[in-house]
Amino acid sequence: MSKDIRNLWYVAALSTEIADGPVGRRICSLPVVLYRERSGAVAALFDRCPHRFVPLSRGRCEGDRLVCGYHGLAYDGAGKCVANPQGTVTRSLDVRSFPVEERHGLVWIWMGDPALRDTVAIPDFSLLDRPAMRPQYGYMWTAAHFELMTDNIMDLSHIEFLHADTLGTEKIRDAKVQARVEGETVYSGRTVHDEILPPFLEGSFQTGGRPVTRSLSVRWNAPALMLLTVGVDPAGPEKAPRETFNMHFITPETSTTCHYFWAATRPYGPDDPEWDRRLREGLERAFRTEDKPMIEAQQLVTGEADLLDLKPALFRGDGAAIHARRILTQLRRAEEEA
Rank of each mutant, 00 (worst) to 15 (best):
H163M: 05
L308Q: 11
A78M: 10
D194P: 03
I18Y: 03
E170Y: 12
R332S: 08
A240G: 08
Y70Q: 03
Y187P: 07
K176V: 13
G105M: 05
V232H: 04
L225N: 08
R60F: 15
L300S: 15
E290F: 11
R38F: 12
G236V: 01
Q136K: 12
L331H: 07
M111E: 00
T169K: 01
Y187H: 13
R26A: 12
H323Q: 13
T88V: 15
T265M: 02
E170H: 13
L162F: 11
R173T: 13
G183E: 05
G269N: 05
T229N: 06
P131S: 06
D20M: 06
F245Y: 13
A74M: 07
P55G: 05
V107M: 04
A338Y: 11
V301Q: 11
A121C: 05
D165Q: 07
T289Q: 15
R65K: 14
H248Y: 14
W262Q: 05
A121V: 02
A41D: 14
D20V: 06
T251M: 05
T329L: 11
T185W: 04
F200M: 09
E296D: 05
M149V: 14
T251I: 08
A12W: 01
E274R: 09
L227V: 09
L308H: 09
A313F: 14
P135W: 00
A263L: 04
H248F: 13
G69I: 04
H145K: 08
A41K: 13
E336C: 04
E243F: 15
Y70R: 05
G24T: 02
R190D: 07
T16V: 09
P234R: 07
D47P: 01
Q298N: 10
P293H: 07
F205Q: 00
R219Y: 07
V230R: 08
D309E: 13
H158R: 04
C28V: 12
I196H: 11
T88F: 14
G168V: 01
E184V: 06
G79F: 06
D20P: 02
D113F: 03
R288P: 06
V32L: 02
S2R: 12
V23K: 07
C68E: 00
V67H: 04
A338M: 09
F46P: 00
D4S: 12
Q298F: 09
L300M: 14
T150Y: 03
L106D: 01
R134H: 10
D124F: 02
W108L: 05
R26D: 15
E337T: 15
G77W: 01
D76C: 12
Y10G: 03
